[in-house]
Design a protein around this nucleic acid. Structure first.
Lengths: 210, 210
DNA sequence: TTCATATTAAAACGAACGTTTGAACTTATT
DNA sequence: AATAAGTTCAAACGTTCGTTTTAATATGAA
C-alpha cells in the first residue's frame, strides 16, 4: 500500500531537514522552509514524522547511525587484530569512519552539515541534546572501555573528558572543512588520510597526558 | 538626564539575555522571554539596543571583552618575563583568564553560560557567527604570533587549526563544568588550578605534534 | 470495478514572533 | 512651578510559527 512517491517525499524531507537543521539549528529552522525547499506539502511532515521534534530525531538518527555502526566495527577489527592496541590505533579507529563519511558525502556542504548537526546537538538545550547523546552513548562506552585497557593508570573520569575533547575537536575539524586555514582543505582520499594522521598525532599524546 | 533605573533596566536586559541566548541560542530565545525574566517592558529592548540582533551583539561584547583583555595582558606579561616562553607557558596564559572568569562568575550556571554562549556563536549561521569571531580575532592573532615564535618549524596554517581545537576544547570544558565526569567539578580556586594544569598538559604535546 | 487504505493538498487554527506607535511617567535643569 | 529630555508603558501592527482539520487524490487488494 506504499506508493513510491511517499518514500521520495519522506526522504526529501529528511535530506532538506538535515541541511537546514545543521545550518540554522532546531529553533532557527521552520517547517515551512523545509517543505518549500523539499517541494512537498506542509502536512507531509506531520504525516510522516508526527512533529518537528520527531523529524529532528529522525534526522539525527539517520546521520549518526552509519557513523556509530562503522566506528564500532572498526573497533572490533582493531581489537581482534591486536591483543593490546596502542592509543594511536584506537584513535585512528575512532576518527576514520567520520572522515570516511565525509568523503562519501562529497566533501561539500553535504559533508560539513553532518558534523555541524552534531555540533549543534551538543550545545542545544534539552531535549534536543539528549537525542544525539543517546545515539552516541554505546559508541563512547565501547571506546572508553578500549582506552581504559590501554591506559589503565588513568581514571574513567579522566578518559571521559579527554575523549570528549577529541569529539569536540573532530566535530570542529569537520565543520570547518574547506575554510582557509582549516585542517581539511579538500576531500581527496589522500587529504583525508593526512588529516587522520594529523589528528591522531595531535590527540594521542593528549590522551596520554596527566 | 539619566535615571538610575535606566541603567538597571539596560543591565538587567543584558544579564538575562546572556543567560537565555547561552541556553537557547539566538533563534530559540524570544524578546518576550527576556523582558519577562528581566521584569522590564518589551519596548525597553528596542529603546536601549535597537533590535534583537544588536542586543545579541551587546551581550557577546560584554561577555568576550573582559576575557580578551585579560588574555592579551597575560600574554604581554609572559613575553616580558621570558625571551622565548615554551608552549606550556603560552597555553597557560591563554587558558587562565577564561577559567578565572569562571570563578568570578561563581561557578554555577552564570559561569557555564559564558562558555555556552561562545560555543553557540561558533555554530550559529552568519551574521551571528561573525559577531564573536570579530571580538576574538585580535586575541587569536596575538597568540598565534607567540606560538609561531616558539614553534617555528610549524606553518601558520598548522598552528591555526591546532589553536582552534584548543579553543573548542576550552569551550567544551567550561560548558560541561559541573556535570558528572567533567574536568571541572567545582569552582574552588584549587580545582581550577588543577583544571588549568590538566588542560595545559593535554594540549601542549598536541600543539607540538606533527 | 469496488472498496479500503495510503498519501497529498489547501485552508485555517490559535499562539507567538520582532517591531512600531503614541501616550504616560520620571528626572534634572531652569 | 515650568520645561524639556530621558525612560517606561500598554496596545497594536503585520507576519510567521507548529499543528490540526477536512477534503481530494492516488494506490493496491477484493
Amino acid at each position: 500500500m506504499k506508493a513510491a512517491s511517499a518514500i521520495d517525499t519522506k526522504e526529501q524531507i529528511l535530506n532538506v531537514a538535515e541541511e537546514l537543521f545543521a545550518e540554522q539549528g532546531f529553533a532557527g529552522t521552520s517547517l515551512r522552509q523545509v517543505i518549500k525547499q523539499a517541494g512537498v506539502n506542509l502536512s507531509a511532515v506531520h504525516y510522516h514524522f508526527g512533529s518537528k521534534e520527531e523529524l529532528f530525531r529522525a534526522v539525527v538518527a539517520k546521520t549518526a547511525q552509519p557513523i556509530v555502526k562503522k566506528s564500532l566495527e572498526q573497533l572490533a577489527i582493531v581489537e581482534a587484530r591486536e591483543e593490546t592496541p596502542n592509543v594511536e590505533t584506537i584513535l585512528e579507529a575512532f576518527l576514520t569512519p567520520s572522515l570516511q563519511v565525509f568523503i562519501e558525502n562529497g566533501g561539500g556542504d553535504r559533508s560539513t552539515n553532518c558534523a555541524r548537526l552534531m555540533g549543534r546537538c551538543r550545545t542545544e538545550p534539552d531535549p534536543i541534546q539528549k537525542i544525539a547523546d543517546d545515539e552516541f552513548e554505546e559508541l563512547c562506552v565501547a571506546y572508553l572501555d578500549a582506552l581504559q585497557r590501554v591506559l589503565p593508570e588513568q581514571s574513567r573520569n579522566e578518559l571521559d573528558w579527554k575523549l570528549d575533547l577529541v569529539v569536540a575537536g573532530l566535530i570542529r575539524v569537520l565543520s570547518e572543512a574547506g575554510k582557509s586555514n582549516a585542517l581539511i582543505q579538500d576531500n581527496s582520499p589522500e587529504a583525508i588520510q593526512v588529516a587522520i594522521k594529523r589528528l591522531v598525532n595531535y590527540f594521542a599524546p593528549a590522551m596520554r597526558s596527566h
